[in-house]
Design a protein around this nucleic acid. Sequence first.
RNA 1: GCGGACGUGGCGAAACAGGUAGACGCAAGGGACUUAAAAUCCCUCGGCUGAAAGGCUGUGCGGGUUCGACCCCCGCCGUCCGCACCA
Length: 871
Amino acid sequence: MATERYNAPDRERHWQKVWRDQKIFETRRDPAKPKYYVLEMFPYPSGRVHVGHVRNYAMGDVVARYKRAKGFNVLHPMGWDAFGLPAENAAAERDVHPGGWTYDNIAAMRAQLQNMGLSHDWSREFATCDAAYYKQQQKLFLDFYAKGLIYRKKSRVNWDPVDNTVLANEQVIDGRGWRSGALVEQRELEQWFLRITNYAEELLAGLDTLDRWPDKVRLMQRNWIGKSEGARLRFKLSGEPLPGGKGELEIYTTRPDTIFGASFIAISPGHPLALVLAKKDPALQEFLADCARIGTSQEEIDKAEKKGFDTGVKAAHPFRTGGKLAVYVANFVLMDYGTGAIFGCPAHDQRDLDFANKYKLKVVPVVIPEGEDPKLFKIVDEAYTGGGRISNSSFLDGMSVDEAKEEVIQRLEKKKIGKRETNYRLRDWGVSRQRYWGCPIPMIRCEECGVVPVPETDLPVTLPEDVTFDAPGNPLDRHPTWKHADCPNCGGKATRETDTCDTFVDSSWYFARFCSPHECERPVDPEACDYWLPVDQYIGGVEHAILHLLYSRFFTRAMRDCGHLNLAEPFAGLFTQGMVIHETYKDAEGKWLSPDDVRFADNGGGGDRSALTIDGSPVEIGAPEKMSKSKKNVVDPDGFSAHYGADTARWFMLSDSPPERDVLWSDDGAQGAWRFIQRVWRLIDDAAEKGAKTGAKRPAEFSADAMELRRASHRALDKVAKSIEGLGFNRAIAASYEFANAFGAALAKADKSPDDSLRFAVREAAELFTHIINPFMPHLGEECWLRLGHNTLLANAPWPDADQTLLVDDTVTIAVQVNGKRRDELVVAKDAGREDVEAAALKLDSVIRAIEGRTVKKVIVVPQRIVNVVA
RNA sequence: GCGGACGUGGCGAAACAGGUAGACGCAAGGGACUUAAAAUCCCUCGGCUGAAAGGCUGUGCGGGUUCGACCCCCGCCGUCCGCACCA
């Protein structure tokens, strides 16, 4: 028997080379086979792979390898989300080119990923900053533009007046620019927008079809789209300060049924009427200025008091003659939702009630809860938002809320002063970024012809290489020649758009590009996409639950409408995995310490753990948190793998915690995985030795020991397969451990017994065990496969089917309860009749003792599960 | 504020068409093999009680439904996540 330990790093390099040389993970379309597309969210090339990546890609790889073994034609590609701000920051800090920096990072990370033994098809690799990719993205931009899905409008941006540059939201810290520290201003710039709101209804309805998405993500998207159904209606205005003395005001409401409960009108401080009125009213001017000072941060909104300003203007109630409502400017009314104006119904809206109480306005309940007396029902400081009967409402009295809504809308439409309207919170997607390292927007501005798209034949609009980052602002904008172009229309002098695309655009269609990554005539080959799409299993972080996933769903539909794709939903199955967390350490001065700088004290067993720095000073052990550079609680997967191998890291990352939950990286846990790898190797090595003596000849009869082992093997195989199908990697691993224990016990028996059928079962168990662990630890899998005498690659071997007859026992152990308390257990034939089971249970001493002479009232027998004696 | 998820040993967790709670791993304790260590192997491991067999108790708390509840219903408490003045 070989006693050598399994040299993981050495063997892993070997098997990686074999796989690479034989190109076995390169995939081609094959209509004869069912396809399966597994995709992990592609990484940003920051320069280093972290353990979060390891977990993410290990999950995808388990699925990919398993599906491959199950006979699917598996597409499992990898690429790079390569545009973005960090490259520009690196360029500014250390005088390198963003492109060079990015491609260097990609090379480093590619090598790291390849060391993990992932079954990616590297022949399909691309980076979004490759001109070949962004050329096609520009083509899509032109197609969308032609289709009316792209438009320009003015929009506010964060402007740093010292650096003269636009800032992303995350670059604004406490209202100041992160570099300059200057107070950030809001500026209006002309920007490009994608008309995602055209698809609001479809994106919402589509969520119902995504039955393999987490409910949580679907709910988040549903809320984000934020559909509300209601009505838009016009109020006639009167009042002295109003220019001309007359006018109309349009409001939006979701509660037209409460129209008779209206006691005021409120408009946004940004509303045109407010601006007009302010021209003649210094007090209102001051009020508007006050509102503008309130920031947009969470805290400020929370603290902001509901304030209003009575304009003196009156609005006529549409259904109640003589009913006049005061028009306020109120700081809580948003300009960019609905019409920027509302009617306030204090009795049935908390915010309106607070406002009404503050300004002493009438509170009239018009919806009376079932069972309440309309005459006695009063609202004081809590609005009633439930259902009921309408009251105090003229022609609506006695109706339900829904009936009243319908009635009001119909009357509004008949009187031509309003109509039914559905609103969404979803806004169009602003994609302009005043940045260098992004996909150039292929548009040209001509003084004569206006905005003109770059002709398709001129694509790609490539980024210039000779740029500098030593000055603030957009390098494209100050490049001496790049932005000057001839107008494609009239040939006159014109300027290029110097904005680039939001990087979320890049990631909104990369999954489709993987189907035909080398296509140069068009963004995607529709036939290839018809075959491969949708992605069957998409895996990534929940932080992308809204934006990336919603944008991708939108892009897929937009591409469909431009003739590039034939489907609406890009991701049939979605899985959001948890983070990898690690303890945090601080020294006596409160400075963060890296795990490498911490030693754990040997406190002689028991008690709390304590830690010291290398030089012996005390360390405070903090709660496990998401790994981050700033807290220094990061583990370098490369260093770990160099010692223990990638298989150990993969196994550990998928064990213990359910994949959707956070997992704690601990050295002890990693050691456990390492011990298991060595144990698997010993078991297989031992089994190969024993199995070899009888070869693979199947005996006519199996001994009891052999049958027990065979049942355990096939049951483990079945359980692991089902667990992987359900993405329950932790359960699959637990089943593997359980089987290792049974296998070890059987091997010990085989040592002492001359039982040939047991030897056969041992050999069979070794083969199945190798298959079982292979998706998780593919290098070790190949090594075991070789040890078992195969001269093929396990990566090419089909997944064995479990023998169904071995999954069920002839006998079952069932619990015996008396009055619901477990008293004993009973081993009975699987198909034993109720009467037999009942009789056997009643004969048990433990049952007789528990009954204590009482009469048996009832005996409940659930076949194969339980007997409950009621006495 | 609105919406959602989750509370199980020292720790990560299993078990959920209501049917033996704690599989599996980590940590811990005891033992074997070693001159010793590493590695490996064996045993113990929710709490209380008992020499043991066993008994009682136990899935955040309080009720309820049921022969039987981690699971279903009602009411609390706590933690986490998302959205946030959306009329």
